[in-house]
């Protein structure tokens, strides 16, 4: 027999009649399950059919999740079992941590964690675990989404530690778009479109500029910077002096950032008398600095000739 966990000769399971998977007589595309997985699933079907909520059922789901963490039916049953038997939810989190670390791309683990942490009604320890997860992959979409959920659930928008933390993440990797999105989320997310206080506006503009100076060819802080300017309803021209640090039409061979050139084109387009400059910037992008998207830049150029050219 192959190594693994089996139930058919386990006395603790002798009262259960397993229910095998019904694939029909000639399955068209039968999945090559391992014997271990097939058997565990057939015992799970049996306990689910009986609505059995028990400690052994919990262990069974653990076994199956370790083999196939994407099986949401198993999670659903586990969740119900925890509730029915009044299990220790701290122990559940303790088990979830290494399981999540083993299955970095899994979606379901995070939904389950939300259910548990919501019931625990405390975010204690979660920040540390998130840090451990992000050490494996600092752009893990599920982890960042979960962090957003935590901020919303426990009202952490204006907690200074949250901003400090995300700033640390950006310091570590200025190209981490997930971290930039999180910064936007905590600074703007709790605001519901309300005006940014002057001090925060200045802080955010300065921070984005500081990050761009570190790595000018980096889309995230440019998007952030322009997003802030738009949110504050400022004209793009407030960024002109800054943008010229990286792209100046007077020095077309020394452009350090296609994003700067792109922004410059929009600044010139905003000023009606500067359309020729805007075209020059877009030409540089189409021919020299970003030719792979020449059609896009040429489209932008065509927009300039229309009466209402708004970027």
């Amino acid at each position: 027999m192959a190594p693994g966990i089996f139930y058919h000769d386990d006395p603790a399971w002798s009262d259960v009649e397993p229910i095998p998977q019904e694939d029909g007589e000639h399955p068209l595309a039968a999945i090559a399950y391992t014997d271990e997985y097939s058997e565990a699933m057939s015992y799970l079907r049996a306990v689910m059919a009986q609505n059995e909520y028990s400690e052994r059922g919990l262990e069974l789901t653990e076994h199956i999740i370790n083999m196939n963490p994407a099986h949401y039916t198993v999670w659903l049953y586990r969740s119900k079992t925890l509730e029915e038997i009044g299990a220790d939810l701290h122990a559940e989190i303790k088990w979830l941590n290494p399981t999540a670390l083993k299955h970095l791309k899994n979606y379901q683990i995070w939904h389950h964690r939300q259910i548990i942490v919501n019931k625990l009604d405390s975010s204690e320890g979660e920040a540390d675990f998130i840090a451990t997860m992000l050490e494996q992959d600092n752009k893990n979409y599920h982890v960042w989404s979960y962090r957003q959920w935590l901020v919303k659930r426990f009202g952490l928008f204006s907690k200074p530690e949250e901003l400090q933390w995300v700033e640390g993440m950006i310091e570590e990797d200025v190209r981490n778009n997930s971290a930039w999105n999180h910064r936007w989320f905590i600074v703007m997310g709790g605001r519901d479109g309300k005006e940014l206080p002057e001090a925060i506006l200045k802080r955010e503009l300065d921070y984005a500029k500081y990050a761009i100076r570190k790595a000018p060819q980096n889309q995230s802080p440019w998007n952030y910077l322009r997003g802030i300017v738009r949110y504050a309803k400022l004209p793009l021209s407030v960024l002109k002096a800054f943008t010229l640090e990286f792209a100046d039409l007077a020095r077309p061979d020394e452009v350090f950032s296609s994003h700067a050139l792109d922004t410059l084109a929009d600044i010139y387009a905003e000023e009606n008398s500067q359309k020729e400059e805007a075209k020059k910037a877009l030409d540089l992008l189409a021919t020299k600095y970003d030719p792979i998207r020449a059609n896009y830049w040429n489209y932008r150029k065509k927009l300039l000739d229309q009466p209402e050219a708004v970027s």
Partner: peptide
């Protein structure tokens, strides 16, 4: 819809 023009899994989740 996000500030960068993209969309995510839920409101304000990163564009993907």
């Amino acid at each position: 819809a996000n500030f960068d023009g993209g969309y995510g899994t839920s409101p304000r989740a990163e564009s993907h």
